[in-house]
Amino acid sequence: MQVTYRIKRFDPEVDKTPRFQDFTLQVGENDSVLDGMIKIREEQDGSLALRCSCRAAICGSCAMRVNGEPRLMCKTRIRDAAPEGLVKVEPMGNLPVVKDLVVDMGPFWQKVRAVKPWLEPPAAKPEREYLAPNEAMREVVGVVACIMCGACVSDCTVWEVDPNFLGPAALAKAYRFVADPRNTDNDERLKSLTEYTGIWDCTHCFYCVQACPKDVAPMERILALRREAIKHGYTDHNGVRHSDSFAQSVKDSGSLNEGRLAVETQGYLNLPALIGLAPVGLRALKAGKMPSPLHHKRPGASQVKRIFNELEKEEKTT
């Protein structure tokens, strides 16, 4: 079949701004988007810069935006990406462009390094392997599957506004060690991950889950880290208070009480933050949107409370 690639190009030695260039070529039925890119590079324009190596979705080199979405090019079939014969290829987002489709992965690796990405096994070395249940290894392998391609970072909505955020790849990597029964320094790790730029900064937007070509689901790992952090007692955080208040509100009334949530998240004793809430509250009041201080119980609230009690009890016993 014939397809047209619309490729975003940028040569820092020539171009002031990026430009799009079209290439038309013949491709095979099951060819990947990468196969076509290689063909362009080999047959039409040798100066096209991109990273690629294994062609089998394991080396992690070729993450780019295909039709606006971060994809491994080698794992994306042309016929899926260009049903109407046109495919748009751009460099990943959130990372500086070096040339054409090559981005500077420096900030990406910097975050990976920041989570101390190695196992801290028990000091007493066993004669042979550390014993560990296969179930736990399977959980770990779910994240080991990460190929560090950067697709998750490309579209991370928090990284976009705050490049200090550790980001989905590094946090998933951190989870890989926390979830490993052989690791010994979870307490320290969770403590540092609870700080600014860490697990509580994730906004839950699912972009990374959607982007990941290896089903690592980084966001789910971040949420798992939050649960672990709470278990380890790192609860002095707005995130924890928010979650507690939210749950308590639903438990008490069947529904969410936003006013209470806002106050309880800051903590009743956190005066500066509470004062900070005031203008927002006043504006809401003026617009007739301030949630009623008398938060009414929903019908069925008693049943909701019962379900809460039953399942919270179950959670404690497991």
Binding site: E129, M137, V141
Partner: peptide
């Protein structure tokens, strides 16, 4: 021992 998550 260094961390490879081998099948068990």
């Amino acid at each position: 021992n260094m961390g490879v998550a081998f099948h068990r």
